[in-house]
Amino acid sequence: MKSCHRWLSRFINQSTRLVPSSCGKHKNFSTERKLNVAVIGGGRIGQVHMETLSFHTPLAKPVMIVDFIEKVAKSTAEKFGVEKYSTDFKDVLKDPNIEAVWICSPSSQHSEQIKALASAGKHIFCEKPLAITLKEAEEVISAVEKAKVKMMLAFQRRFDPNFARAKQCIQSGAVGDVYAVHLISRDPAPPPMDYIKNSGGLHNDMAIHDFDIARFMTGSECEEITAYGACRVDPKIASEGNDIDTAITLLKFKNGAFCTVDNCRQSPSGYDQRVEVFGSKGLVRFGNNFPNNVFIEDAQSVRRSDLPFNFFMDRYTEAYRNETKQFVQCVLENKEPPTSGRDGTAAMAMAIAAKKSLLEKRAVKLSEITP
């Protein structure tokens, strides 16, 4: 396990390198210069990436922010000292100085924007999903491959030090053959009803991150899914949102590993993210992150002084920064990004299979899910 500690130190200093890199066909750039970037979408996640690019990524230089609400675009540009702002993403296409673009816009706009950016020769960092349907996602990937630009899909959990260390321990052989993975992913509170109505369902909106991590941890592709779910937190999620809020999903992988994914829209103790990977030689596991390591000890009990982080952006602050730094490095050094559009379509197919299993009350093979 000592190798895990040595590797974590390198991870923090050099960013995540879990997937072997290979050279593409673009010109190699010196890392002495800065990458000119733009961000499309000034909402919550756009603000996170803009802050990282502006203050935590020395090799990146934000030169434009785009948001369809002019007030948001202007205020974001002023906040981060960005020279240009716009309400039309096509202005990014026209600017020859912009080399890479972060897509943080609404999901329904991703497909159009990726295709246009690829055609214009811009490298692309995209928040999930690539598109609304598998067919659209395949079209997006084809457009990117044809344009020979780099595209990275934002599965930020892979870049969190806990997930990254666990993965390295598995790769080092410390766990042996992976038998079973258990993933717990629970939010502190349900999202607004308007969000639920347009989310595509719990498996598509929430569990899709766990599906990606299941592939990441097992190193294999899923071949069969069985999903169970119910509405236990708020009956309106069922009656108005036509969705569930609590689910257990069983995944069967081609290498023989199993994975259980435990999701709930509400966790009274806060954001609940736990992982256990069990194998032939042992197991690796980690629990929740806390704001501090202070405990209270008295005559009644021994307990933590504070609850876990209550918001995913607090829990994954370092992960968001690591993934952004990694993509900038990949573009500047002409290396392939560690997460791709293919990772996105694999997780999307698993979400579709899970929903199909839930509705049809049966195990669903991934071979049944086609674009």
Results as ranks from 00 to 15, higher is better:
349 A>M: 10
9 S>F: 14
353 A>L: 07
10 R>E: 15
356 K>T: 10
205 D>N: 10
112 E>R: 10
20 P>S: 13
136 E>T: 05
192 P>S: 09
307 L>Y: 13
131 A>P: 03
17 R>D: 12
225 I>G: 02
172 S>R: 04
218 T>R: 07
202 L>G: 01
299 A>F: 08
79 K>A: 12
313 M>T: 14
332 L>A: 03
78 E>V: 05
208 I>K: 01
2 K>F: 05
129 P>Q: 06
319 A>P: 06
99 E>Y: 04
202 L>F: 04
229 G>F: 01
367 S>T: 14
269 S>R: 06
370 T>A: 10
304 R>K: 14
140 V>I: 00
129 P>Y: 08
87 T>N: 02
291 P>L: 03
144 V>I: 14
282 G>R: 08
291 P>V: 01
336 E>M: 11
226 T>K: 12
187 D>F: 13
317 T>P: 00
198 N>T: 12
326 Q>S: 11
230 A>S: 15
148 K>W: 07
141 I>W: 01
307 L>H: 11
195 Y>T: 12
332 L>S: 02
92 V>L: 07
273 Q>T: 10
71 K>Q: 12
110 H>R: 07
125 F>Q: 07
210 D>F: 02
62 P>K: 07
29 F>V: 07
281 K>P: 05
296 I>S: 13
31 T>M: 12
100 A>C: 06
252 K>R: 15
367 S>V: 14
181 V>K: 03
237 I>Y: 08
6 R>C: 09
109 Q>Y: 11
272 D>N: 14
57 T>H: 00
58 P>L: 10
103 I>L: 15
277 V>M: 11
247 A>M: 00
105 S>G: 00
161 P>W: 04
225 I>P: 05
216 F>D: 09
162 N>Y: 08
191 P>E: 08
253 F>V: 00
129 P>R: 05
97 N>C: 03
294 V>H: 13
214 A>E: 01
171 Q>I: 09
276 E>F: 14
351 A>M: 09
16 T>R: 09
295 F>T: 01
305 S>V: 02
202 L>S: 03
23 C>V: 13
351 A>V: 01
281 K>H: 11
335 K>A: 08
356 K>Q: 11
82 V>D: 07
363 A>T: 15
371 P>N: 06
271 Y>G: 03
215 R>T: 10
89 F>D: 01
249 T>S: 11
19 V>T: 15
231 C>L: 00
330 C>D: 11
27 K>I: 09
130 L>G: 02
22 S>M: 10
181 V>C: 06
265 R>P: 00
12 I>Q: 14
316 Y>F: 15
95 D>Y: 01
35 L>S: 04
26 H>W: 01
278 F>Q: 09
236 K>C: 12
126 C>H: 04
261 V>I: 13
116 A>C: 04
30 S>H: 13
